[in-house]
Each structure stands twice: as C-alpha cells, then as structure tokens.
C-alpha cells in the first residue's frame, strides 16, 4: 500500500507533483520574435543552444526515462553512472516509494546563497527536488530526438514553445543548473539566453536537425 504524504508545504503523490502550483516570480523576460523574423539557419543555431543545455549533465542527469534512476555524470562525477546509494525516484519521480528525493535534497524555505557550496552534498533549492517527467527523457538522446520531443504537445505537457520557455523561468530546480555550487559545472549560457533561443527557434518554425 502506498500512501500520499505531505512534505513541507507541498503535496507529494504517486502520480502527481502538486508543487507546480507554487507561486514564483518570473526573473527573466519572455522576448517575442515575430514569425518569419528568424531564418531557418538561425533557428537551427538557436536549437543547438538549447540542445547544449538539455544535454548538459546539470539538466540531463534528472531527465531520465522509465528507469526512474537519476544519473551521475559530468566532470564532477568522473565516470558516468546511476545516482549512488541505489537511489530510485520510482514512478512518482520524487522517490515516495523508497527514499524521497527530499530526504537528502532538503527543500529550503528561503533562498540561500551558501546552501550548495560544499562539494558532494545534495543540492537544495526552494522547491521539492524531483526528476523531470518521464516523457521528457533527455539523457543520452540525440539532438533530433529531443527537438521533436520538445515540440510534441503529447510529451511537453501540452505547451506551446512560449509556454515551455515561460515554464523554465518558474522552476527552481531547473534554475539551480546555472548556480549549482560545490564543484559542479554550471549549465552553459544563461536561462535568459535559453529562453530567447527557444523563442527564436519557435519563430523559425521549430526546425529540427536531421539524425
């Protein structure tokens, strides 16, 4: 029997992560680019920016598939391997069924500059730590795969690309990727540049690279 439980101010359940309802203030700007104002070549270049971020360990380590096992990859980990300690985030993607992510990745009540300074400690942010939805599997996937996935409403939470770009600015776990602390390598570019890249890619008609 699996129960629903509460942790902090968030409701954690097997099939639902109700913490998305938290009210957060957008910190970046959603810049519009008129349709047709961005060439195909520029659109593909913009996609490449997003892909470099999506495939970076700060992002891809938690964008895993139905194994539900977060990954440890990137310069700070050396060899690529699943998260240590036999951690599985389970079907809930937040570990309710075994060890909740928040058991170690404790949810901060207030932002803190020094919460993640020590290497090898579990990162902490002001939102419950969690895997990305299973539909957003990125780890080890090609640029073409992720490109087609991201614009597929069935796999992107029924969002427009503007919705996706806006969503990025409201996710505290995601924002941590640019300020990871410890000895972790930051995701490339900046969140503002990624949002702009997505919007330019959209204005270019969401072109995808071939395999």
């Amino acid at each position: 029997m699996i129960k629903v439980f509460t942790f902090g101010s968030c409701l954690l359940a097997i099939t639902n992560l109700a913490c998305g309802a938290q009210t957060l203030t957008a910190e970046n700007k959603l810049n519009e680019f008129p349709a047709g104002s961005v060439t195909l070549e520029q659109g593909l270049a913009s996609w490449q920016i997003f892909y470099e971020v999506a495939s970076h360990p700060r992002c891809s380590n938690c964008h895993v598939g139905s194994s539900n096992r977060p990954m440890w990859s990137g310069p700070s980990y050396g060899k690529t391997r699943p998260h240590g300690m036999n951690i599985k985030a389970d079907e809930s993607r937040i570990g309710v069924e075994s060890v909740p992510c928040a058991t170690c990745h404790v949810t901060l009540l207030q932002p803190s500059e020094n919460a993640n300074t020590m290497p090898h400690t579990p990162p902490r942010v002001t939102a419950p730590w969690a895997l990305a939805p299973v539909e957003a599997e990125w780890f080890g996937k090609s640029s073409s795969f992720i490109c087609n996935q991201l614009k597929d409403p069935e796999r992107n939470g029924n969002r427009t690309i503007a919705d996706v770009a806006s969503h990025l600015d409201h996710d505290r776990v995601l924002q941590w990727a640019w300020n990871p602390g410890g000895n972790r390598q930051s995701a490339p570019y900046s969140l503002q540049m990624v949002m702009d890249a997505l919007m330019k890619w959209s204005a270019a008609g969401t072109p995808c690279p071939s395999e």
């Binding site: 439980f5 942790f7 060890v99 909740p100 928040a102 058991t103 170690c104 404790v106 949810t107 901060l108 009540l109 207030q110 803190s112 919460a115 400690t121 579990p122 902490r124």
Partner: peptide, 13 residues
Amino acid sequence: GIAVRSCQVRAAD
C-alpha cells in the same frame, strides 16, 4: 513523519 538527513536540514528550513 518523513525521513530526512538532519545534517542537511538547516535551522531556517
């Protein structure tokens, strides 16, 4: 009721 590693829970949290 939820297990947490108390070394990771700051007073403020």
